[in-house]
Nucleic acid binder design. Structure first.
Length: 377
DNA sequence: AGTTGTGAGGGAACCATCGC
DNA sequence: GCGATGGTTCCCTCACAACT
């Protein structure tokens, strides 16, 4: 009845089963099918992958219904890097799948002289509170703890598990909380109670209080939202200024949708990269949306417009990306002779699930994409 | 002068695909 | 099969800025 799906590392699924009540139900382990085999995934799994792919997904019953997504992240939690996984949290939550996002509280980073702790950025915690609130489903963070006494020195002193050396120590306080959350989710599923009701479970309420507590613990050092990454690369402008900016780029009055014109303010995310790339900007964009633009479940529920601007990237760079996809991979390319499930997937859904992540996330989330020389809206 | 947070850029590892 | 190739993802490096 329960199944655990994994993306590329089977030990994630095995660990998850081992440390939770999932082990009582003898769940099957399956690999998520990607690339040309994407259509082999159950429809419900396909849906929650429309932006990005988590490390593990727990499903229940037949046809498989996703009940929990899990992400294990071991990278240093400061700056914008940690945001690169946020798109997968939001995608799951927006289809009613609860989520657990595990990332380091801190990590020791070796420098040429000595080293220092890289400590968590508070904004992911706040972004997760908003994701939970808007989608009425728990999306909770758990800390991967670290210390210099019992931590693994080669992993920045993260506490690692004895049996699964790449995973967090199951005996740490936070991983016990995580296991409790998984067990609670299983209990709700078995009792056929919905996740909206679970939002009011004492465990979740306590955890949300914990999230705010840990948020403020860091935030009070610099109590201004836009002083923390990735909002440090954002600015708020009047929408009338946005229209002027677009006009400069395209040389004529843009015909923007009324709902964009009607919002008084616009958040512009402006990374100064010279490359059109996905990580970490795609995930950051989703985080920025939930932190400063959204006030509801969908991209239309926004009190501010969300724009991503690549001032140093030409439209040609993006275009070459989707042209390559069309010429070499898309089943709609004129030279394609295959009549397989990959073609059928495209006849049904277009390239929603198969085109490059950059194109999926930027185009789905942003109200406008601005390049050095072009505007897409 | 030291501390802290940032973010562009890139390396390593992995993966899928292709031609032989 | 097997190596080459090219794409993607995860995570790290390091210069720099803004502060104390």
């Amino acid at each position: 009845m329960f199944k655990v799906w994994y993306h590329d590392n089977k030990s994630f699924a095995e660990y998850l089963i081992k440390i939770t009540n999932l082990s009582k139900y003898n769940p099957q382990i399956e690999k998520i099918s990607l690339g040309r085999n994407f259509a082999e995934n159950p429809d419900t799994i396909q849906k929650i992958l429309y932006l990005d792919i988590p490390d593990a997904i727990i499903t229940y019953g037949f046809p498989e219904k996703p009940v929990l997504g899990v992400e294990f992240c071991a990278e240093a939690p400061s700056g914008h890097d940690i945001f690169q996984r946020v798109a997968r949290v939001a995608a799951s939550a927006s289809f009613g799948t609860s989520f657990a996002f595990i990332f380091p509280e801190k990590k020791w980073v070796v420098r040429e002289i000595g080293g220092r702790w890289d400590i968590y950025n508070p904004l992911p915690l706040r972004a997760l509170v908003n994701i939970s609130t808007f989608h009425k489903v728990p999306a909770l963070p758990f800390f991967w703890e670290a210390n210099q006494i019992s931590g693994n020195e080669s992993e920045g002193f993260l506490l690692t598990d004895k049996e699964f050396p790449n995973m967090p120590d199951r005996n740490s306080k936070e991983m016990k909380q995580f296991a409790e959350f998984v067990n609670l989710t299983i209990a709700y599923v078995l009792q056929n109670r919905n996740f909206e009701e679970m939002m009011f479970d004492p465990f979740i309420l306590e955890r949300v209080a914990w999230m705010w507590d840990r948020y403020h613990e860091r935030y009070r050092r610099k109590p201004n939202l836009f002083d923390w990454s990735p909002l440090t690369s954002c600015r708020i402008i009047k929408t009338s200024e946005l229209i002027k900016l677009v006009k400069e780029k395209i040389g004529r009055e843009p015909n923007l949708p009324h709902y964009v014109v009607d919002r008084a303010e616009t958040v512009v995310y402006e990374p100064s990269t010279r490359n059109f790339r996905s990580d970490p900007y795609t995930g950051s964009l989703v985080g920025i949306d939930y932190l400063t633009c959204r006030n509801g479940e969908t991209v239309r529920h926004r009190y501010r417009n969300l724009v991503i601007h690549f001032p140093q990237v030409s439209f040609q760079k993006m275009k070459s990306m989707f042209v390559r996809y069309y010429k070499e991979e898309c089943p709609f390319r004129p030279s394609n002779r295959e009549t397989d499930t990959y073609l059928t997937l495209h006849l049904r859904d277009g390239c929603r699930y198969t085109k490059q992540k950059e194109l999926r996330i930027y185009c789905y989330i942003a109200d406008l994409l601005l390049f050095r020389d072009a505007a897409l809206y």
